[in-house]
Nucleic acid binder design. Structure first.
Length: 253
DNA sequence: AATCCTCGCAACCGCTTCGTG
DNA sequence: TCACGAAGCGGTTGCGAGGAT
């Protein structure tokens, strides 16, 4: 992690917007040398920026695979769902939204989704929606005493209670949820939702060593990954209904 | 046409976490 | 064990574009 500091501390770092020339330099450097020590990147790439600025520019703008443009309804649903579960954990949310950076998600939340949710709450309190949609208690609901999903008011899902882990796992959905586990709860029965969280516990626990060991690869086979992503969409729909209610239509706001 | 206001996005700042010597 | 420094993260700010007055 730590790298030899070759940075000239007295160097005056440039601030503000990046020029196309700077972007090209950074991109060329990373393509040729790969990701390494960020503090040495600006020096070696001939940029008058600090490493932090370079990292941010790369992760939020230059990184390959980034999806630019408006968020789809489904992406918004996922954000709302995850926000209800995680709170303002933007980087964790970005793990579940391929091509979206944490900054982008955060901006979208603050400029758009937060208002939508506030508007929804002013029309229909979420308690009402939840009562209508879920009469039986689930493990998910039991950990959510707060009904609001507004960032500052919500009591986010307590991961330590739900998963037994101190810190929420930094892991892709498809990496911890196997198809077998999904099939067991993919019936319209809230009890199965409890099972899904149990499956989450189990899989997270078993993968903790791998995560802590620094490996981000999963045990899941590549061929199953695309299938898992579809499953992931279904899963978020399920959770979304659990939190927001089945009749909620984001487009209606 | 000029000014003001709002919104969205990009980037900075400060704090926390984590690895290394 | 501790101090240091790099990386990561979330909150906040600044600025430009576009719409309203």
């Amino acid at each position: 992690m730590r790298c030899k500091s070759s940075a000239n501390q007295n160097l005056k770092h440039k601030k503000g917007l990046w020029s196309p020339d700077e972007d090209q330099k950074l991109k060329d450097y990373i393509i040729n040398h790969g990701l390494g020590c960020w503090t040495s990147v600006p020096i070696n790439a001939g940029l008058q920026r600090n490493g932090k600025s370079c990292r941010l520019r790369w992760t939020n703008y230059l990184r390959p695979g980034l999806k630019r443009g408006t968020f789809t309804t489904h992406e918004e649903q996922i954000i709302l769902t995850l926000h209800g579960m995680l709170g303002n954990k933007w980087s964790q949310m970005s793990q579940h939204l391929p091509g979206r950076s944490d900054n982008e998600i955060k901006n979208h939340w603050h400029s758009y989704l937060k208002k939508k949710v506030a508007k929804l709450q002013s029309i229909t309190p979420l308690d009402t929606l939840n009562e209508e949609s879920c009469s039986s208690s689930t493990s998910l609901k039991s950990t959510r005493t707060g009904s609001s999903i507004e960032s500052n008011d919500v009591e986010p899902l307590d991961y330590s209670k739900v998963t037994g882990l101190r810190i929420p796992p930094k892991i892709l959905f498809a990496d911890w949820l196997s198809l077998d586990q999904f099939q067991l709860f993919n019936n319209n029965n809230s009890d199965e939702l409890s099972y899904s969280m149990d499956a989450f516990n189990h899989t997270c626990s078993s993968q903790e060593t791998v995560i802590n060991g620094g490996s981000y690869s999963s045990g899941i086979q590549e061929g199953s990954r695309a299938e898992c992503q579809n499953v992931e969409h279904d899963f978020y729909d399920l959770i979304f209904e659990e939190i927001i209610g089945p009749n909620f239509n984001i487009n209606a706001l």
